[in-house]
């Protein structure tokens, strides 16, 4: 039998009761001669007790009526945000508008597609967190949205159907960009994960293959096709993003 010290991973699996009975017996046998591991287990149990004690009150409180109301589809009286929160969200919009879109023109000329991808990420980070107004026109007014966005963009605008990947269209909006109006579609899956598709004019560079960029958790996959630049943006592994981009690309052909 091995007498090597137990690793934290082994101990975690043991502690969380995630082992087969065979593995469990083996770990228990090794624990006997591993006082360091025993001390860890004792402390982890104490961590759990502390954590339970710290957050016990919320469990015993009555559920606030406005939360219950959400489920019963009564118009939920949302807690009115304080002045600070309003100021903060305005500040975010201002940063998005100046820091994100305008100042790019002053930077030492990154390639146009990179600018597009960055604008798409900024737009995603600004609007995906929105609760009340994530989109300007909801998907329920689809015909109106298509007419309006087509007119503003000066090219046929029809959002792709991504339901095969589990994402349903929430709606769209028009945004300012260095190339004139840009379109943004937002989708959400059943887990509440949101992705956006950003489309703007892209006169330089011709067609291009899929390219990635990302800042932090938000990843963007972008490409150019027939005078338009496209970016699919989301906080998810690249393979899933690529699947969504491919579906988008196939439908836009």
């Amino acid at each position: 039998m091995t007498r090597s010290a137990l690793t934290d991973e082994e101990l975690i699996a043991y502690f969380e009761d995630a082992l087969s009975s065979e593995r469990r017996a083996e770990i228990e046998a090794r624990l006997v001669s591993d006082p360091e591991a025993q001390a860890k287990l004792a402390d982890w149990a104490r961590q759990n007790a502390d954590i339970q004690a710290l957050f016990i009150e919320t469990l015993d409180e009555p559920v606030p009526e406005h939360l219950r109301a959400v489920l019963h589809q009564a118009p939920a009286p949302r807690r009115v945000p304080g002045l600070f929160q309003i100021a903060a969200s305005l500040a975010i919009l201002a940063v998005g508008a100046t820091g994100g879109w305008v100042s790019h023109a002053n930077l030492a000329t990154p390639a146009a597609p990179v600018l597009l991808a960055q604008a798409a990420i900024d737009a995603h980070d600004t609007y995906a967190v929105e609760v009340v107004h994530p989109v300007e026109v909801p998907a329920s007014e689809r015909a109106h949205m298509d007419t309006w966005m087509t007119k503003r963009m000066g090219t046929q605008m029809r959002p792709p159907d991504l339901s095969a990947s589990g994402f349903s269209l929430m709606g769209g909006r028009i945004l300012p960009s260095a190339q004139g109006p840009a379109g943004l579609y937002m989708y959400e899956n059943e887990d509440g994960k949101r992705i956006t598709l950003y489309i703007s004019r892209q006169d330089t560079g011709g067609d291009s293959a899929f390219q990635y960029t990302g800042s932090g958790p938000t990843q963007s996959l972008y490409w150019q096709d027939d005078g338009l630049g496209y970016a699919v943006v989301g906080d998810m592994p690249r393979a899933r993003l690529k699947d969504l981009a491919k579906r988008t690309y196939d439908q836009l052909l």
Binding site: V70, L71, E188, N189, E190, G192
Partner: peptide, 17 residues
């Protein structure tokens, strides 16, 4: 308050989906 706002958002999304 932030926790309750988070739960409210969560419930709204759950209701929608």
């Amino acid at each position: 308050d932030a926790g309750d706002d988070l739960v409210q958002d969560c419930l709204e999304r759950a209701l929608a989906h």
